[in-house]
Amino acid sequence: MDIAALDAVQIELAPGSQVILPMLLAVLMFAVALNVHVADFAMVKQRPVRFLGAAAAQILGLPLATLGLLYVLNPPPSIALGMIVVACCPGGNVSNFFTHLSRGDTALSVSLTATSSLAAALLTPISILFWTSLYAPADALVDAIEVSPIPFVLQMTVLLAVPLAVGMGIAHRYPRLAHWLRPVFLAAGLFGLAVMVVGGVASNWALFTATAGTVLVIAMIHNAVAFGVGTLSARALQYDVAGRRSVTFEVGIQNTGLGLVILLGQFEGVGGAAAITALWAVWHLFSGGMLAGFYRGLDAVRAQKSARTAP
């Protein structure tokens, strides 16, 4: 079945979803903020040029690479919109786990996640509108949905900034409370999002399952490009091995939960966009785990070679 059919699909949500979705967005951002501390930004002072370069790789490099990929793959407009939304989202905390697992620079990873999460309050809505305007099919789709730029940016900024500020305040003043609250709010937000997505997809289940294979391939290619942008940027910035792994995971692992909420709440749940974002959310966990395993294996091989050549 042609994936272009997804352009015409709109995920139908339950009554009251226009109230529930902003609440879910606030809950997810609050959960993220509970894990952000002032100390996480220490890297900005220690290595400002390299750090800002790594942050730029995620905030600017990935959307730019995504734009280039769109012109190569020429996917349906709704798929393109989903790819752009994913690329404009901040990094996810899962990147910190994969960085630690692969023996990367965890402190750098945490700092980059905190920075992109903080910047997301303003940059994510602006970036989505900017990069979609540079790809005509996605731009036409956004116009058809009738997304008003100024209200969209203002609403998204408030919904992202307020819970972010409150969460960081609690993390700073009451770290033990933040440590206890975070998994509760994160689980509640993800569960609510999952219920809404599954319920909405059920009405178009046959179409989504028929096109899932093709959409997954696009998500896999996009994710591979994201990892590539991170690796190449880290090399250009002359990071050591641990630093390169951190930047690679930070650019390759995105907060797709945030992307799904934005698509459902602000872009009327366009089928193709929601499909690729949801598959991205699943796939980057597998790809991140495989990449971390590859790095660990590479370390083992290098250790064996060093042992053989040691006097």
Rank of each mutant, 00 (worst) to 15 (best):
C89L: 13
G92S: 06
R173T: 04
I145R: 09
E146L: 14
S116H: 12
D105Q: 00
S102R: 00
L160F: 06
C88N: 09
F97G: 05
L122I: 14
A114M: 08
D139W: 08
M83A: 14
S111V: 05
T99I: 00
I79G: 08
T113W: 09
L108Y: 06
Q155P: 02
V158Y: 07
A171Q: 11
I79Y: 12
V142R: 10
N96P: 11
S133C: 06
I145F: 09
V162C: 02
A114Q: 02
V110F: 05
S133G: 03
V110Q: 04
V85R: 09
V166E: 01
A87V: 13
V85A: 02
A80V: 08
L112F: 02
S111Q: 03
D143S: 15
D105H: 00
G91E: 09
Y135T: 02
T115A: 13
V153R: 08
M83R: 13
C88P: 10
L134W: 05
R176M: 04
A114Y: 08
A80N: 07
G91R: 03
S117A: 15
S148A: 15
T157L: 10
S133P: 03
A161F: 13
Q155K: 15
R173H: 07
I128F: 11
T106N: 00
P90I: 11
L101Y: 14
S148W: 01
G92I: 03
P149K: 03
C88S: 14
A138K: 10
P125R: 09
I126M: 15
T113H: 08
D139M: 08
A80T: 04
S109N: 04
S78T: 04
I84W: 12
G104F: 09
A119I: 15
L122E: 03
S95K: 12
G104W: 04
Y174C: 08
V85G: 03
L81P: 11
F152M: 12
A80L: 10
V153C: 06
A136N: 04
I170Y: 06
I128D: 06
G167V: 07
L154F: 12
P137A: 10
L118S: 15
A80C: 07
I170D: 00
L164H: 08
L129T: 00
P151W: 14
L160R: 02
R176S: 02
N96E: 09
A87W: 14
H172Y: 01
T99S: 13
L154R: 06
F130T: 00
G104E: 07
L118G: 14
T106F: 07
A87S: 15
F152W: 14
C88G: 11
V86A: 09
S133I: 03
P137Q: 09
I170H: 05
S111M: 01
S148N: 14
V85M: 10
S116C: 12
V147H: 13
C88W: 10
L112I: 09
A114F: 07
A119Y: 05
L177I: 06
F130G: 05
H100N: 10
R103E: 01
A121I: 05
A144F: 03
A165N: 07
